[in-house]
Computed example of a mutant assay.
Amino acid sequence: MENIHDKNIWPVWATETIDIVEPNPRWIKKGEHEKALLLDILSPSGITEIQHYGSTSIPNLPSKPIIDLMAKIDSFETVEDIASLLVDYNWHYVHPDLDQRPWQRFFVKVTNDKREVHLHLLLEGDERWDKQLLFRDRLQSNQLLVNEYAILKKNLVEKYSNDRELYTKAKTEFINSVLKM
C-alpha cells in the first residue's frame, strides 16, 4: 500500500506553489457556475446549500485563482459516495489525514494539472460556516479591509509560496480581527 504522506507520489497540483494574481471579475460568475454544477450533481446526496466564500468571492481582491466553495452536509458518512459522484468531473478527494482538518472533508477540482476549484464540506451547524460567510461579507462591504488583506496576502506569498499551510496560518490574526469587528 502506498504511503499517502509520501510527496513523491502526489500529483502535480498537490504541490504547486501559491500564486496570487490580480482580481478577475469573472471569478464571481465562475463561482456561481461551479455552485450550480455541484448542486446538480450533489443534491441527491442531500447537499442543498453551497456558498462561494473565498477570496475570489470578494471584488477587487488579489487572490489565488482558485474558487473556494463550501457546502453543508449532515454527516461525513456519505463522503465516499460523494467522491464517487465527483470523480467523473475532475474532482479529487483529499483524505482527512492529508488535509489535517478533521472538521471538514476537502475536494479539489483539477484542470490541466492546476487547481481550479476547492470544495469544503462542513457539517451542518459548524460555527466555521457562519465565520467564513461573515468574513466574506465584511470584506465585500469594506474596500479598506480588502486593501489591507491584499497587502498581507502579497507579503505572505513572498514568504510562503511553497507552503500552503503556513501561508494560511499566517492570515489567521487578520481574519480573527475582522471577525471581532
Rank of each mutant, 00 (worst) to 15 (best):
D97C: 11
I47L: 10
Q51D: 04
S84N: 15
A36E: 15
E34A: 04
S84L: 10
T78M: 14
L39E: 01
I58H: 08
E49H: 14
L61V: 09
S75V: 12
E34T: 07
F76Q: 04
A83I: 02
K35Q: 06
I73C: 08
L38K: 03
I41Q: 06
L61G: 06
S84D: 15
I82Y: 01
D68G: 09
I73R: 09
H95C: 05
P65H: 13
S45D: 15
D88M: 09
H95W: 13
W91E: 02
N60I: 07
L37E: 11
D74S: 13
Q51A: 08
A83W: 01
L61Y: 03
T78S: 15
L85N: 10
I66N: 07
T56G: 07
S57V: 01
T56P: 02
D88S: 14
E77H: 12
V94S: 01
W91A: 00
P62I: 14
T78A: 12
H95Q: 13
S57Y: 06
V87F: 08
Y93G: 00
M70R: 00
L86W: 00
S63Y: 08
H52L: 09
D74T: 10
L38A: 05
L69P: 05
P62N: 13
I66M: 11
E49C: 09
T56M: 11
Q51S: 07
S63E: 04
L85S: 08
S57Q: 08
S63T: 15
A71N: 07
Q51Y: 05
E34D: 01
D74Y: 12
F76D: 03
D88K: 14
I47C: 09
I58N: 04
V87Q: 13
I41K: 02
D88C: 07
D88N: 15
H92S: 13
G46V: 01
P59D: 11
L85M: 12
D97A: 15
I66R: 11
G54Q: 02
L85F: 13
D81K: 15
N90H: 13
N60G: 08
F76C: 00
K64V: 02
I58T: 06
V94H: 03
I41N: 03
L38W: 01
K72Y: 13
V87A: 12
L61M: 12
Y93D: 01
S45V: 03
N90A: 09
K72M: 14
H52V: 10
P96I: 10
T48I: 10
L37K: 12
T78K: 15
L86E: 01
I67C: 10
P65L: 14
L69N: 03
L69V: 09
P62F: 11
I47Q: 02
E34V: 07
